[in-house]
Simulated scan of single mutants.
Amino acid sequence: MTASTASRPAAPRTLSADEVQSLRRRPAGFGRWFADTGWRHLVGVLAGIFCVFPLLYVLSSSLNPSGTLLSANGLFTVVDFGNYVDLLFNRPQQPYIAWFANTLLIGLISAAGTVFLGALAAYAFSRMRFTGRRIGLLTLLLVQMFPQLLAVVAIFLLLNAIGDIFPVLGLDSQIGLILVYLGGALGVNTYLMYGFFNTVPASIDEAAKIDGAGHARIFFTIILRLVAPILAVVGLLSFVATTSEFVIASVVLADPTKQTLAVGLYRFVSEETSRNWGLFAAGAVMAAVPVMALFLYLQKYIISGLTAGAVK
């Protein structure tokens, strides 16, 4: 053996596949796990507690017959369904069932109308080229920078003037309220749908046109099926916004039998000497059921609809 060969360092040994797997299965220390992923679990647990606690507090208050929030500090110390029974059957002057039906009717019609009109406008902006197209998109975006709340006085005067000619569309009319909701939600939803419509390849339209299909047939038979996720997202957002809206509904609707849940439930806590937070909490819990059911039903469309429309 020469001197050069003796001084040469030995080559490192290559680990076998079994040794690599054993190293991967070797448990890491708690500190390393917490630094890598454990802190995320901690943040998730804290966020979950932060979100769930108000819901549990409202549910506990709805089951407390005292009618106050202060006595509900101990969660579920008293479980009594008297508030629900009283709210549904013992208060004819405060018709909760009528409010619930009005809210569902207005919310569903507004959501369906918003989806349909927004899809028509988004298809036109996405597939057609016409003068003023870009200016129209920018106008829709700029108009949404001003909240609808700023137009409450104008909406009141407008509906008051329309009611003199067409009473069915004026003040204290659910149809008039629906039209106000449709006009307020059309801009932002059109812009959101426009981004999703652009993700659908235009070659599909061209192939359908070669077969003799027009814009109406392409829209109703092809495009609507491909953009179902964004339709579900817009419908859900519109339904949630409509059912929880208070200011415009309180201005437009005056008849107690025509009011929505947001306006009707305000009566239980608006008067200084007759506040009943138990009934208010019970009504809020039942009002959340349709929104939660619709959210669970459309959940499979929500993530894909929001992400695909946002990145275009």
Results as ranks from 00 to 15, higher is better:
residue 194 Y to G: 00
residue 142 L to P: 06
residue 96 Y to N: 04
residue 167 P to K: 00
residue 180 V to W: 00
residue 175 I to F: 12
residue 86 D to T: 15
residue 151 A to Q: 03
residue 122 A to H: 09
residue 185 A to K: 02
residue 101 A to C: 03
residue 142 L to D: 09
residue 90 N to P: 02
residue 107 G to M: 05
residue 150 L to E: 00
residue 185 A to V: 01
residue 211 D to V: 01
residue 102 N to I: 06
residue 184 G to V: 01
residue 88 L to C: 15
residue 106 I to L: 08
residue 169 L to Y: 13
residue 127 R to I: 08
residue 147 P to V: 03
residue 181 Y to D: 06
residue 198 N to E: 14
residue 196 F to M: 14
residue 208 A to W: 03
residue 117 L to D: 04
residue 185 A to P: 00
residue 171 L to P: 09
residue 140 L to G: 07
residue 103 T to I: 11
residue 181 Y to S: 10
residue 168 V to C: 03
residue 92 P to L: 09
residue 176 G to Q: 04
residue 170 G to N: 05
residue 183 G to A: 08
residue 141 L to C: 06
residue 191 Y to K: 11
residue 94 Q to T: 08
residue 99 W to C: 09
residue 200 V to W: 11
residue 96 Y to D: 07
residue 112 A to Y: 01
residue 215 H to R: 11
residue 189 N to H: 11
residue 106 I to S: 00
residue 102 N to C: 10
residue 97 I to T: 14
residue 203 S to K: 11
residue 83 N to K: 12
residue 81 F to L: 12
residue 161 A to R: 13
residue 148 Q to R: 07
residue 211 D to C: 00
residue 173 S to P: 09
residue 147 P to T: 14
residue 211 D to R: 01
residue 167 P to N: 11
residue 114 T to G: 15
residue 112 A to D: 00
residue 196 F to H: 10
residue 173 S to G: 08
residue 135 I to T: 08
residue 112 A to S: 12
residue 177 L to A: 08
residue 207 A to F: 05
residue 95 P to I: 04
residue 140 L to K: 03
residue 151 A to L: 15
residue 146 F to N: 03
residue 188 V to C: 01
residue 131 T to D: 11
residue 161 A to E: 11
residue 173 S to H: 10
residue 168 V to S: 10
residue 115 V to W: 12
residue 118 G to N: 10
residue 92 P to D: 09
residue 173 S to L: 05
residue 83 N to L: 08
residue 186 L to D: 04
residue 158 L to G: 04
residue 130 F to D: 14
residue 133 R to N: 09
residue 103 T to G: 12
residue 134 R to E: 14
residue 216 A to Y: 13
residue 153 V to S: 15
residue 199 T to G: 07
residue 187 G to R: 03
residue 163 G to K: 08
residue 213 A to W: 00
residue 198 N to H: 10
residue 83 N to M: 14
residue 139 T to H: 04
residue 85 V to P: 05
residue 132 G to D: 06
residue 104 L to P: 09
residue 123 Y to P: 07
residue 132 G to M: 09
residue 180 V to S: 01
residue 136 G to E: 06
residue 128 M to R: 15
residue 129 R to Y: 09
residue 196 F to E: 05
residue 151 A to I: 05
residue 112 A to C: 06
residue 193 M to L: 10
residue 163 G to T: 08
residue 95 P to R: 06
residue 183 G to N: 04
residue 97 I to W: 13
residue 170 G to K: 05
residue 218 I to P: 00
residue 104 L to R: 03
